[in-house]
Design a protein around this nucleic acid. Structure first.
Lengths: 140, 140
DNA sequence: CATGTAAATGCGAATTATTCGCAGATGTCA
DNA sequence: TGACATCTGCGAATAATTCGCATTTACATG
């Protein structure tokens, strides 16, 4: 069930804090993205957003995701052979594992990976902006 | 300088061992990929392959990379916002770091990351098929 | 609240990377 | 030396994403 937009001042504020205008389209998209547990691609978002607000266009979904990614509110997950998926930037970092047989996307909990990467980047004289790991694996 | 194809039975054997036919196009492409230190995309490969053998077509470069990737001879590096790049599957594993300012692609040496991922995947009941990490970072 | 203005939107066309279909060429193996 | 499955080039087709532009709209300011 999707919460009525009027009851979600949170997301509106999130947008404002990022210096972005709060449009109904953006509100719908962010609401959907916040309330889902999976990692939708643009098509998913477009369809669900349309159900809330039938003025949303695909182009706007793309533009919104780009803008949100830039603002650091959203993370883009680039897949090997499928359209990109998105998730709200998670409070606790995690990486992803794709089940090559079923296509499932599993979150890898914990910060071990992130910590190691930070250390490794530091050794090379770099500071991490973002990192993205996708493991392709098969159930044992 | 590019070594004459006739002097590179290595790559030809590599293809045969993978059950693939050795065509001049594939030989050119594999030679180029083996002798380069950077991580070319299809366009790079196409241009360089043309210099060796002007019958090579883009479609064949794509097909060859796909076939080589499937055979595990080549690794595809999926970038966020640019065409995929390729490298020969390295004897010692490594991951990649993109300098967000210059666009440079730096190899991360060592097996620490790979080991950690193997462990983490195992904990989730999976066995790694491949993993791919791209760190986006900025010089400190 | 009226309103000027930059920012955002929808639409469809354009781009970009990649794949496909097919007819002809060519490795490989008997 | 065939036979034939595999490859190839070509150009057309797809799929994902971006762009151009005319119109609308959020929102700061008076």
């Amino acid at each position: 069930m999707v919460t009525a937009l009027e009851n979600d001042p949170d997301y509106r504020q999130l947008l404002r804090d990022a210096g972005l205008r709060v449009t109904p389209q953006r509100a719908s998209i962010v609401t959907i993205l916040s309330e889902t547990d999976d990692h939708p691609n643009v098509e998913d978002l477009y369809e669900k957003a349309r159900a809330l607000d039938d003025t949303v266009s695909v182009a706007t979904v793309y533009r919104t995701m780009s803008v949100l990614e830039n603002a650091g509110l959203v993370r883009k997950l680039v897949m090997d052979d499928a359209p990109a998926r998105y998730e709200m930037t998670p409070p606790t970092d995690h990486d992803h594992l794709v089940d090559v047989d079923s296509g499932d996307l599993v979150e890898i909990p914990g910060t071990e990976i992130a910590e190691l990467m930070g250390r490794v980047a530091a050794e090379l004289g770099y500071q991490i902006v973002s990192h993205h790991t996708v493991i392709r694996a098969r159930k044992t």
